[in-house]
Nucleic acid binder design. Structure first.
Length: 926
DNA sequence: CATCCGACATCGT
DNA sequence: ACGATGTCGGATG
């Protein structure tokens, strides 16, 4: 169950009459426990409670229903109960149907409220449903409830008004929902004249059978679209006339209201009953966008960015600097004033704004800073000088664009209440500003300069000064009206395989000929390039949360030369971390945060995500496009080794739907003679098979043996199955060429004595690459690379620490897995010229490694290279190998991986300088 | 024709 | 449900 489903179940439970005997089970059921789990608790077999009527689910919760008025005592009893001590539940809970008290034992955090209100605190218990509680979840109970209710209303309305669900009318529907949300918020915050006025009016004035609900709402909306001066001729009913003029675009446009069924009407009244003061515009906004999105409704908020991750973008982009300036200014009135003036001219632009949560967070953080300035200057009541119109966005989908605008309005009101008080906040709130700062459209096709224009005369104040103005010139006057622009956001990521035809065309139009390989770029790259182009014209800086692959492998030599030649450099970055937010089902992607802008003197900041979850800040003069500290280097893929190394080939791609591959059982089942096996069967390894010691076989028929093979029914059958599959493939090559030789893998490479094997994907936790050798009877799938019949010293190189460092840096990755590549990693690996003696030494080292492995037969490669449990003799063999190889590089052991990488990049640059193609490898002036 | 990638895919616990 | 860790075949130039 996701949070919304739990909320529904919990709300429903609270509305039912209280049943003391059933409550504990109903409560557990509402949090997603299965029937069988509950049955076992009922029969007592898993119920560890020692209290009468108590229910204790081990390591989860101890619940007891209290005698009337005895909730507090019962909770105390739960706290001290021996069973609680023994079964270590996370929560204890007591209720009598009137009062409700609960405690999380480890933190001591408690909830005490009326029974009917406990659904408002359901976020507290979400760990029961296995939903990891970041602190934020607890604080967003309201947002989840509101989202869930609106979701139900939305679906119900579409059911009653099918025409509103068509592509044409969806914007109307979405606009209608935005108006409703505004009204719910306004009626609970005194923006409307009387608490709950909107909901109450609808309840009173619309018939119970719901027949005229839409007319009543229509009149209210009409009132909010009618300036007070025109009210007389508008002939509004008296009950509508008491509503203020709101507009600002929100109530203009189509006045239509969908028809309400009785159910829809009751949902509406129900939603109005929530306390909308508690709304968090950032969180709510990100959840609500799922309401109007058929695809996202199930996944609920899978793609919205959590607040901590938004701050990874905004803090280093400009907020850290503003705070540093505030600190610097102390109580110096003039410096504070300058900072305030500067902030009033800062524009924040999110060209993939969704429901606007980056903009809302940026706005709130800036208001906090401004409030501190005003406090220090003794002007606490002062109206904000930060215009909402400086927060701009582009959003493709209609509904989120509506919500983004609303979220900003709500954020402004809440900030005014917080810093200036309710009275002043109200006085200036209505009518809403008419300007719409959120553009609905395709960000890669729109002109960013016209959406977020660099107004005013000059934009001379650019990135150089932003972070580190020397202390002695704090009184810079920000005369340029242009101010600073910061571009931020979390644009969509889509690898080339997943892009639609339109999206591919979008990317190409942005790239506009600057690379011939635009087809390989991720969709998100479009935002980086547009941002770089914007910055080239208008200054500023940009930072996005992005799939980490734009800083890996083949993307680097395609994307980064474009960004560099547009005049940008990496100013800061967060290295890869796994995408996560509060959604119960997270998108499966690993992201990085990358900030770009015009080069400046200040140190670059690299925030490294370590394996233990800590973030370590490293500073340096420059950050590489691979997100390491160091001089800019771009590694181009190469079709043959730049050093004198063996030739590494891609494995044999089956493209067979599994028909040419056999497990041991399948092989036995087709019953070949030994001679036939010898002729038609080979062992085959992919990454998995090689690392974990699986054994698979493949049908291996050389053309000269085809007739004989066809005589064997089992082989014939499989060959025909492959033919059919290849003929049906969307890939032209598969249909035309491969289908003509269905008895074979796409390639038929095999060693005549042995082959050195490198798995193409493998875990990043191992201390060395899990490479090795296979015999002449074994071949490889496309999930492994091979050096057929190559001298063993090649293996010594592959198995070295140096090579691992190189590969993990310059090759692509699968999330953070190691993804080997011959063209990007092996062919580019810089190795000094090896003497015969060197090769003999390295061969010896490789043999020792293989012997050490053999001593542990039948341990698999995965066993042998377990990062926590690697055998000492194998480790020693690798140490010696590293020692021998590193002496060849620099005459001694490297001190650490940083030094290794530095040396490798240096050598690579030297070896590729001026060689072959004119393509620049060291780009621009670092 | 060779190969790099995946807002992933699939396993085991 | 979550952590660990690698399949498979399309799209590309």
């Amino acid at each position: 169950m996701n949070a919304v489903e739990i909320e529904e179940a919990v709300s429903e439970l609270a509305e039912r009459p209280f049943d003391p005997a059933e409550f504990p089970y109903q409560f557990l059921a509402a949090f997603g426990n299965k029937d069988t789990t509950i049955k076992r608790l009922r029969t007592g077999s898993t119920n560890a409670s020692d209290l009468p009527g108590g229910v204790l689910q081990r390591s989860n919760i101890h619940i007891a229903v209290a005698a009337h008025g005895a909730v507090t005592q019962t909770l105390a009893g739960l706290r001290t109960s021996p069973a609680t001590a023994k079964a270590k539940p996370r929560f204890i809970l007591a209720t009598d149907g009137d009062g409700f008290e609960a405690e999380e034992l480890e933190s001591g955090e408690t909830v005490a409220c009326a029974y009917a209100d406990f659904p408002n605190r359901f976020g507290f218990f979400l760990p029961l449903a296995g939903i990891t509680t970041v602190k934020q979840v607890r604080e967003s109970s309201f947002d989840i409830r509101a989202t869930s209710r609106l979701n139900r209303l939305y679906v119900e309305l579409l059911k009653d008004n099918p025409d509103w669900g068509t592509a044409d009318r969806r914007p109307d529907m979405n606009h209608f929902m935005a108006r409703l949300i505004f009204c719910f918020f306004a009626e609970d915050t005194d923006i409307f004249n009387g608490e709950g006025l909107f909901t109450a009016t609808i309840e009173q004035m619309s018939a119970r059978d719901s027949s005229n609900t839409h007319e009543v709402i229509g009149e209210l909306f009409r009132a909010m679209n009618t300036p007070i001066a025109q009210r007389a001729i508008a002939k509004l009913p008296r009950w509508a006339d008491v509503f203020p003029y709101v507009n600002g675009g929100l109530f203009s446009g189509s006045p239509a209201v969908p028809r309400f069924s009785r159910i829809a009407r009751s949902y509406l009244l129900h939603i109005g009953g929530l306390d909308w003061r508690k709304i968090n515009p950032d969180i709510f906004g990100s959840m609500i966008q799922a309401v109007a999105d058929d695809d996202e409704r199930g996944a609920l908020g899978m793609h919205y960015t959590s607040v901590p991750n938004i701050l990874k973008v905004l803090n280093p982009l400009f907020l850290d600097d503003l705070r540093a300036r505030l600190e610097e200014a102390g109580d110096n009135s003039r410096m504070l004033l300058n900072l305030r003036r500067r902030m009033a001219r800062i524009r924040v632009f999110d060209p993939a704004c969704g429901s606007g949560n980056f903009l809302v967070i940026a706005y709130k953080e800036m208001r906090a800073i401004e409030a501190e300035i005003n406090k220090r200057r003794g002007e606490a009541d002062r109206a904000s000088e930060i215009p909402l119109t400086n927060f701009r966005g582009i959003e493709l989908r209609d509904f989120p664009a509506e919500v983004a605008r609303l979220a900003l309005i709500i954020a402004e009101y809440q900030a005014d209440v917080l810093y200036r008080g309710q009275k002043l906040a109200l006085a200036e709130f209505l009518p809403l500003n008419k300007e719409n700062w959120i553009t609905c459209g395709n960000a890669l096709r729109l002109d960013w300069l016209s959406i977020c224009p660099p107004t005013g005369t000059g934009v001379k104040h650019h990135a150089d000064d932003l972070f580190h103005t020397p202390l002695d010139q704090p009184q810079i006057d920000f005369e340029n009206e242009g101010g600073e622009t910061y571009i931020c956001g979390n644009p969509p990521y889509l690898g080339n395989t997943w892009q639609t035809v339109e999206q591919k065309a979008d990317i190409r139009s942005v790239v506009n000929g600057r690379t011939s390989s635009a087809g390989f770029l991720d969709y998100v790259a479009g935002w980086f390039i547009k941002a770089a182009d914007y910055i080239a014209n208008a200054g500023g800086a940009a930072s996005f949360v992005s799939t980490n692959s734009i800083c890996q492998g083949q993307s680097v030599p395609i994307l980064w030369p474009i960004l560099y030649s547009a005049g940008c450099d990496i100013l800061f970055a967060y290295t890869s971390f796994k995408w996560a937010n509060l959604a119960s089902y997270n998108a499966g992607v690993t992201v990085a945060v990358v900030g770009i802008g015009a080069p400046r003197n200040a140190l670059r900041r690299l925030y490294e995500h370590r394996e233990d979850g800590h973030v370590v800040l490293r500073e340096g003069a420059s950050i590489t496009p691979y997100l390491t500290v160091g001089a800019r280097v771009i590694v181009e893929k190469s079709n043959n080794p730049i050093s004198a190394l063996g030739i590494m080939e891609f494995g044999n791609k089956p493209s067979d739907g599994g028909h040419l591959l056999l497990s041991r059982d399948e092989l036995n089942a087709i019953g070949l003679t030994n001679a036939q096996r010898d002729r038609f069967i080979r062992c085959i390894y992919g990454s998995q098979d090689f690392i974990n010691g699986g054994l698979r076989f493949c049908i291996w028929i050389e053309d000269k043996n085809l007739d004989e093979a066809q005589q064997i029914p089992a082989l014939h059958e499989r060959i025909e199955a492959v033919r059919a599959l290849r003929l049906a493939s969307p890939d032209k090559g598969a249909r035309t060429i491969l289908a003509k030789r269905p008895h074979q893998l796409k390639l038929m490479r095999i060693g005549s004595s042995h082959a050195i094997v490198v798995p193409s994907v493998s875990s990043e936790r191992r201390p060395y690459l899990p490479a090795g050798i296979v015999d002449a009877h074994t071949t490889l799938t496309n999930l492994a690379f091979a050096l057929y019949d190559a001298p063993l010293w090649n293996l010594a190189l592959i198995a070295s620490r140096l090579h691992l460092v190189w590969i993990t840096t310059v090759c692509g990755q699968l999330e953070t897995r190691i993804r080997y590549s011959n063209t990007l990693g092996w062919n580019t690996f810089p190795v000094p010229t090896l003497t015969e003696k060197n090769k003999a030494d390295l061969t010896r080292c490789a043999e020792d490694i293989l012997l050490a492995r053999e001593a542990h037969f039948p341990a698999t490669i995965a066993d042998l290279y377990d990062p926590d449990d690697m055998p000492a003799d194998l480790r020693d063999a690798h140490e010696r190998n590293d020692e021998v190889l590193e002496r060849i590089y620099i005459g001694r052991h490297f001190r650490n991986d940083t030094e290794r990488l530095e040396k490798l990049f240096e050598l690579y640059t030297k070896m590729t300088a001026g060689a072959g193609s004119a393509k620049k490898r060291k780009v621009g002036a670092a």
